[in-house]
Design a protein around this nucleic acid. Sequence first.
DNA 1: CATAGTATCGTAAACGTTTACGGAGCGCAT
DNA 2: ATGCGCTCCGTAAACGTTTACGATACTATG
Lengths: 356, 356
Amino acid sequence: MVQGGKPRPMKGIRQLAEHLDISIGTVSRALNGKPDVNEETRKRVLAAAEQLGYVANQSGRSLRQGTTNVIGLMIQSSRETVENSDNFFLTVTGGLQSVFSRHKLDLIMLPCPHDEDPYEYLKRMVARRIVDALIISETQRVDKRFDLLAKAKIPFAALGRSLSGTQHPWVDLDFGGVINCAIDRLVAHGHRRIAISAPSSDINLGFVFVEGYRRALERHGILYDPALVIRAKSSEQGGYQVADELLRLEDRPTAVILIYELMAIGLYRRVMESGIIPGRDIAVVSFREAPRAKFLQPALTCFRTSLHDLGVELAEILLSSMPAYSHEYSRKSRQTVWPLELIPGESDAFRLTTTK
Amino acid sequence: MVQGGKPRPMKGIRQLAEHLDISIGTVSRALNGKPDVNEETRKRVLAAAEQLGYVANQSGRSLRQGTTNVIGLMIQSSRETVENSDNFFLTVTGGLQSVFSRHKLDLIMLPCPHDEDPYEYLKRMVARRIVDALIISETQRVDKRFDLLAKAKIPFAALGRSLSGTQHPWVDLDFGGVINCAIDRLVAHGHRRIAISAPSSDINLGFVFVEGYRRALERHGILYDPALVIRAKSSEQGGYQVADELLRLEDRPTAVILIYELMAIGLYRRVMESGIIPGRDIAVVSFREAPRAKFLQPALTCFRTSLHDLGVELAEILLSSMPAYSHEYSRKSRQTVWPLELIPGESDAFRLTTTK
DNA sequence: CATAGTATCGTAAACGTTTACGGAGCGCAT
DNA sequence: ATGCGCTCCGTAAACGTTTACGATACTATG
């Protein structure tokens, strides 16, 4: 009957074993680098697997050892995110993968549908046990997901800090440092009336940004004026709207800090419609840099960082909390505030001479 | 020993069955909506599952029925993509999910690492059988992935047309229609010397775009000049570079068609550095719209479409090629050229009077 | 020569589902 | 009373792995 193993479609490890005339257990051990297998046979097995294109069925493996070798990155892609996130996630993903791939871990992105509650979505994903560990992003000020993941005992890390005091690992951009640096610089140039744009305070970014803003002003003895905090979307449209509101103010600010570089496009447009020249009549500083900042006119002063490296850090922090990998990364601190550096442009270059 | 089922962590369907004093088979049938189960017991099972938070283990299910209920969207996130893809994928993803969710299918994104060959990556993913079907993006002019997927007999669709004549399903933007419309419009305004930017011809977009450009010029009796085809990245940097090359030409073109709206930022910057005003001294038309087009100054003339709806179309086309779902979508044609509509701006509004 | 130790391999059980199959109970017509 | 059809449910096999355990052959040691 069995008269020679033509390279058939390859159904599983069993066929591979038959083809080699070896027991299925040995084949498995050979493929997985277990010690108790002759190097000679291991070579044969690996060669045959390569030739026949055998790759272990993930479901079978997962079922047996309760592990999937997949890490999930949950992203919300809320309307707001779609508008502004740019390639934030894809860039961070690159950093994550450069670490994970060393451990034969695959990264998949789990985009929560618009019409589904992120918490419910996450619950589903956790229950399905499709991933070994999770990275969640766009953390909220109060985020039930932390409890969910802790209770499910699934390793996770967050892209975005936690304000609820829990001790899970996270990495986040240094909003506080950025806002301090920006305000120091503007004050040094003579500005006293500085507006700021921020998203809703429910989002960590919005909350921390405005808090840092308040403290920085206080440090310089400048009174905090709520009217100068403008909640807007982090898009061109949002920037346009920020400018619109600023122009309506009686005591118009001389400087504005934007939460995102894209907003500058809309803001430039709006103020120029009123004959106001950015970089001459109003100083503009933006938080996160994207490649287009330097092509704006005037070039935007903003803060830069390597999102790729941030991804690396995030990956290492996650692995350090996974028992199977922690021995390699245990030295890592578990919560990182990621620094950014100032890229001076021309949008805030002028020095204010008139004192108010 | 077993003295009452306290809501324990819930290990599997077996515990659920014990807790209900029903056989495990019946529980499974009840949960999966099989007909031969009493409606009364079905209710009990569903209630208990809900209360105990039971969700079927995906690995077990997949192993048994050879299906995962997961659709994968492979994205390259090559350097070039990271620069320009923006939220293209996230928006399309929204459309895909709105269809998939109706069938309890989950979408995951599979980002191919930078340092891995997309073909090898796809091979791995296919072999692992982690998804039931695949959507691949950024198709090349010759793309081995089509053969791979066809040979593996895994249903798939492409975001990006095929030029190799294979009959697999795809959806792609209507490059040809766009280029025709743009050139008709420019010619009607008196332009005869029209430059165009495009990515490498290896990529379908680059190839089709330039081909359409040639044919459109021919239709108007305008000579095709290879010097006016400028290969550049689809980023601000690329736009800057396009302008740079245009300015160096002896017989400078009066109009330019950009492949991507972001490029306009760099192009504006560069030509204005030479005292040339876009929309007055040079006409600019861009291919795909993004929300910032209208905030540029002058507002960019470009083409718009709903990427969300494109995602819907793509999802339906894919499902129509999957036996389990095709009965609901079988009427769909399998290859769709997705239309875009012109959004007039001011960047090409002027009428050329001087004849050359 | 007997024994212990080592290297290598085969056997079979488990992982959590789904599902084909058959059996029990019941009502109804013959 | 018998047979038939129906509804509902339990049993057990199967999916493709990994791995604990034991078996074998060989080597080294006494």
